[in-house]
């Protein structure tokens, strides 16, 4: 990997004098202020049905501009099949692509930065390549540093700059599509942590002083228009890669509040947001609602 593990406050591109200036002009989320502290939960043995129900209850995808470019970011880091529950279920991805198309999207791109290699095998075994292409989306995967751009993190406590996938930066709409699963280092992988897949150098965060704060800080800089979390089958042990024990809540969680979505999902594992520090810290940064007592759950 060509990236550098710098530690400190500017870990992605290291913040050296020769680095390009970070992009401080990232857009605000189109859904900013909409549905703070609200989550919509679809429940069905058919995850595509659960997704459609939750999105409809949330008011649909009217925030997608006609002909706009939508980027979907599932969690497909690992060479694992859907039953192993380490990646976003391809049925949910395919259904989301269809919904975006119906809402008027002109171009839909599925972006991933896999950890296991080769990426082609990961995307094949996971079912994501077939789901994306079958539903008519472009599939962009990269491990090349040139495909990431510097960004400023102006609201962070620890992180001041990092990188962002160019594909995500250039999108009109960015929809985060994480998998809810166990993670031996952070407790859980949820939506905020899924953003580690749009930075170039994950290793620097893992070896840095405070992974939880990095995750929370970075999320304040990325325009997340919607979170669609796959909790159809969740990985309970041996995460993030598995294989491990799984359970089937048969839920898809939709929210415009990325913190509330994660806070709700903690409960599926018998945890509270305070057990998963990055969720609580993102709440402290004002990114969303992390207190379960203040989160309205609407089941669809």
């Amino acid at each position: 990997m060509a990236g550098l593990a710098c530690g400190g406050v500017a870990v992605g591109g290291c913040g050296g004098a020769s680095d390009p200036a970070p992009d401080a002009g990232l857009r605000q989320p189109r859904t900013l202020g909409r549905g703070r502290g609200r989550v919509w939960v679809g429940h069905s043995g058919d995850p595509a049905s659960a997704l459609r129900a939750a999105v409809a209850a949330a008011g649909g995808l009217g925030f997608i501009p006609e002909g706009g470019h939508v980027v979907l970011k599932p969690n497909v880091a690992w060479s694992r099949n859907p039953q192993q529950a380490a990646n976003t279920d391809p049925r949910i991805l395919a259904a989301m692509i269809a919904l975006c198309r119906e809402a008027g999207a002109g171009k839909i791109t599925v972006f991933e930065h896999t950890i296991d290699r080769p990426s082609e095998q990961v995307l094949a075994v996971s079912g994501i390549a077939a789901a994306a292409r079958g539903a008519g989306a472009d599939l962009v995967y990269t491990t090349a540093e040139r495909d990431f751009v510097p960004v400023a993190v102006t609201r962070g406590k620890l992180l001041t700059r990092d990188t962002l996938a160019r594909t995500v930066r250039d999108a009109d709409v960015f929809i985060n599509m994480p998998k809810a699963k166990h993670h031996s280092q952070t407790g859980l992988t949820l939506g905020l942590k899924n953003l580690m897949g749009v930075i170039f150098n994950r290793q620097a965060w893992h070896s840095g002083p405070d992974l939880h704060q990095y995750i929370a800080d970075y999320a304040t800089a990325v325009p997340i228009d919607m979170t669609v979390m796959d909790a159809s089958r969740i990985l309970l042990t041996n995460g993030p890669k598995g294989p491990g024990k799984t359970r089937e809540p048969n839920e898809v969680i939709v929210s415009f509040d990325p913190v509330a979505a994660d806070a709700y999902a903690c409960g599926l594992f018998g945890l509270s947001p305070s057990d998963v520090a990055y969720v609580a810290r993102a709440g402290e940064l004002g990114l969303g609602e992390s207190d379960p007592a203040n989160i309205a759950i609407e089941r669809a």
Binding site: R202, H206, K241
Partner: peptide, 11 residues
Amino acid sequence: LAGIYNGGYEE
């Protein structure tokens, strides 16, 4: 080992 297990490597 993070290249194999990502954040799970510390285990």
